[in-house]
Amino acid sequence: MMSINTVMVEKYRNNFLREVEANVEEGEWVKMCMQCGVCAGSCPLGDAWEHPPQEIFMMIRAGKREDVLTSDSMWMCTSCYNCIVRCPRELPITHIMHGLAHYARRLGIQPKNNPTQWFCDVFWNNMMKKGRVNELKLGLSLYFKNGFLSGIKESLKNAGLGLNMVKARRMSPMDFFGGHGVKDISGLQKMIKKAQELEADRIDRHGG
């Protein structure tokens, strides 16, 4: 069986813009960009982007499929929404960035070892366990990402913050032992599963 990536390449040939419109969340907005660059300038993490949003839009129009989808630029988006607020054409840039990242991942050509992506996975798995995010565990898993020793170091560095959060009742040390969950966790899981099926079906139809 062909990879979904190959299928998409075959299907859209050189028309990456059309591929984005059909497969990427809010992708139909890409064509509305007038290349003013206010998004690029407004991004607080702008320095970290190899290709700022406006440039990504131009690359999409220029058919630079590989460069865009394997780029880690859109993984840099922290959803601050500065770009959306300022965009003179009202492009939902934040959403498009996430959509592109998501699409790249679906195709399996996203950059490997991208911390954002790793964090998203951890976050998802964490949440799916109980239907709620266990912040203590989420934090710890982040600290211990690169091994035990650095995990201890990171944890100690942030101990003060953790204590303050506990004091302010924003986090409970008891979460370490399981933490709160939603009432009907199996119901939630069923619901998510159904959604995933629908999504897969949609992708199959478009991608197949």
Partner: peptide
């Protein structure tokens, strides 16, 4: 003034 020159992408 802060921004990005879209011709070449320079900040």
């Amino acid at each position: 003034l802060q921004g990005v020159d879209t011709e070449g992408g320079n900040r």
